[in-house]
Design a protein around this nucleic acid. Structure first.
Lengths: 337, 337
DNA sequence: TTGAAAGCGCTAACAT
DNA sequence: ATGTTAGCGCTTTCAA
């Protein structure tokens, strides 16, 4: 039977060690001036008592939490996971902890989440995307901490941003395919209204196609995000039925692109001989599947790292901090000619 | 220029509204008894002032944080992401927030992380796996909160566990392959000492093969976890060189299994005609690639959900709570005969 | 239904 | 190098 007893506090350690609570507090800071003997005695007593530092009390008194709040659409997405990884990596140097929330690609949920996260008094907040509900915007604008938007170039940035144009990225892919000689190009993904990055990519497709004077009707919505491999496959099936003469397809992500690829394989179609496929995100699968996928690398981990160092600069009071424009990179592989 | 000013507190709202701080506090609780007019006035004032509730202060005073600490090996793993998703889903009903940390498959890092997380005074802690450093064990044993180990059946459980035998799971796959008529079976993955679940699976392979009186030498280490698709492909290449007559391969995960599959495809080998491949984890890719992958579904999301409800039961003081033994399920698909 | 007093565990600020 | 005092913003507890 484990005894239910109140966990020891610094006061308890102070009593045992015969010093003041303040001295105990100092013993736990690395930089504070305190004699080695006193500190050793205190740390030993703490160990003996099974003391666990209370961050809550410390946070309240010092008005610092070392939290950085982060919202991402989904935990289960290698791109966003990489961004969080890069951010985490950078912030670890300052012992800051990430407080993570998932919006499930839903702006309402994002609003709820932002409010929730701000209550924890983070030192900064990082959100994915540059579009938010009016209330979420207001919450972020009023928050007394740095705000960074990522994975987008916001129309009206709230604080700083680290991102790229989602429309521009697809435009680059269209330009490449047109240069290669294709004209009957389709787009899979980008449900309207929900996934703002997906919509932006769809929009970029439309604009680019119009600019080239090409038919923009080959659009297959793949449902609400996240777009799975299965949905990519289903969308490809519909595309092939509706527009059998399509020469090339741009998919909203490598995952849906892979699904589309498998659909072709099951139908005995050759990629890229019978149809070309392009994806987005430089997921590992695109570099290893047969054929490998032409894609766009948005440098997800880099977004996280740069967000982290931008954040640290702002928190350090640096004056010359600016937005970071990420340059996504087209990677041409076997799935396109 | 945004003005730096101290954010408003309940006391500020109280002053503006002409009530006591305590009444303001009550206005923010749904169940508290307070007149509708008073509450409305308070909520309006709060909105006007841009008030944000301070969870830190609330936590300190009430000695409740509504945090549940969770450690997983990696954020970028669909299985663990699903478990966290299931847990998150279940805990949302109680407005509990997950405090997530990544061990990077490293027990030292896990120890560091557990210590860090406990300082935030969570109401419970959930760890992945049943093996820990001695110090981590002690921290967990001494923690005045429920401890749940997942994704394993610990030799000596610290609190409760929600998991399955990783060795047993591979044993089941071996048995299936032997029943199908294979005898020259290989195992890819399971670096010794680092990824404990991977090692356990490798161990399960060895035991099962011995039980069937079969050769256990077809072992290809794929390096430290997480084992990527690329590493799966490389391991398959080595396997085919060292043991060209192998009939079937069990991979430590679907991701490495897919990598192995692509290596076969690049060599012009047919799966399952020339060689069979089995994976683990029921990742989406295994259900859609060509051929689809035989795998084992560990019910990752279910692990999270059941961990959540077990946790809530314990926190509610229920007396009859027990461990949860998950039954992984063999899913036979196209990659094996 | 509301208020007053006290204090959660720590640390900023000042003193010695 | 160490101690004293006060207080971070909220909520428990008791009272009215």
């Amino acid at each position: 039977m484990s005894q239910i007893r109140k966990p020891p506090t610094m006061a308890d350690i102070a009593r045992v060690t015969g010093v003041s609570p303040m001295t105990v507090s100092r013993a736990f800071k690395t930089d504070s001036l305190i004699s080695k003997e006193t500190r050793d005695a205190i740390l030993k007593a703490a160990e003996d008592l099974g003391y666990v530092f209370d961050a809550t009390a410390s946070n309240l008194r010092s008005q610092k939490t070392d939290f950085v709040a982060v919202t991402i659409p989904s935990i289960n997405n290698a791109n966003f996971a990489d961004t969080v990884g890069g951010l985490s990596e950078t912030l670890a140097a300052r012992n800051m902890q990430i407080l993570l929330g998932y919006t499930n690609y839903d702006m309402q949920e994002e609003e709820r989440l932002i409010e929730q996260l701000l209550r924890r008094k983070p030192e900064a907040i990082v959100v994915t995307g540059g579009k938010h509900t009016a209330r979420a915007r207001k919450l972020l604008e009023n928050a007394p901490i740095p705000v960074i938007e990522t994975w987008d170039v916001p129309a009206e940035p709230i604080g700083r941003f680290v991102g790229f144009s989602n429309a521009g990225v697809v435009r680059g892919m269209v330009d490449h395919l047109v240069r290669t000689g294709y004209s009957r190009i389709a787009f899979i993904g980008g449900d309207v209204g929900r996934d703002t990055r997906g919509s932006d990519r769809r929009q970029g497709f439309l604009e680019a196609m119009r600019q080239h004077g090409l038919d923009t009707s080959r659009l297959i919505a793949a449902g609400p995000p996240p777009i799975s491999m299965r949905e990519g496959a289903n969308a490809m099936a519909r595309l092939l039925e509706q527009f059998p003469d399509t020469e090339a397809v741009i998919c909203v992500s490598d995952l849906s692109a892979f699904g589309a690829l498998t659909e072709c394989q099951r139908r005995g179609m050759r990629v890229p001989e019978d149809i070309s496929i392009g994806g987005f995100g430089a997921y590992e699968i695109g570099s290893i599947c047969v054929p490998t996928l032409t894609t766009i690398d948005a440098h997800a981990r880099d977004i996280g790292r740069k967000t982290g160092s931008l954040l640290l600069d702002i928190l350090d009071g640096k004056q010359d901090v600016g937005d970071v424009l990420i340059k996504p990179q087209l990677i041409v592989r076997e799935s396109t000619r």
